[in-house]
């Protein structure tokens, strides 16, 4: 069956999730305010914001993309970036030591959920693109 939306819905989903990654840590699931010197949680958030900008760009490109190859490439970029969204707070930079601090309690779990959503949707997109490709070959 031909997919009618040509990935536009996915592009919108990516854009919303990216925006959430940028705005969320500053409002909805904020980390604690910087006092004397910025702590790990601050740097994690900054790094995730940078990744979110990449993901937002991916969303825009996804919206414009027509070719399956470009979409597949964008999906791979999404997978790598989303993995970083999870790894930066979890391993690479981290956050406050105390589990009860805002970053550990709310901000990072939110990053993990958004990261997983990106990962799952990108993997599903690649699988669907593969199936479409196989279907097209069969039709020929």
């Amino acid at each position: 069956m031909k997919r009618k939306k040509d990935g536009k819905t996915l592009a919108v989903l990516y854009a919303v999730l990216s925006a959430l990654l940028i705005v969320g840590p500053r409002s909805l699931f904020a980390v604690c305010a910087v006092e004397e010197k910025p702590m790990k949680c601050y740097w994690s958030t900054q790094a995730v914001t940078a990744l979110a900008i990449i993901l937002l760009a991916v969303a825009v490109l996804f919206f414009l993309a027509d070719s399956a190859q470009v979409k597949a490439a964008l999906s791979i970029v999404t997978i790598v970036t989303a993995a970083m969204v999870i790894l930066i707070p979890a391993r690479l930079i981290g956050g406050c030591g105390m589990m009860t601090m805002a970053c550990r309690r709310l901000t990072f779990p939110a990053f993990y959920v958004i990261g997983i959503l990106f990962l799952v949707s990108a993997v599903v997109e690649i699988v669907l693109l593969q199936k479409e490709k196989a279907g097209a070959k069969e039709q020929e």
Partner: peptide
């Protein structure tokens, strides 16, 4: 409390 990550223990 010293900074952001040092919550009051």
């Amino acid at each position: 409390t010293a900074g952001c990550c040092d919550g009051e223990n």
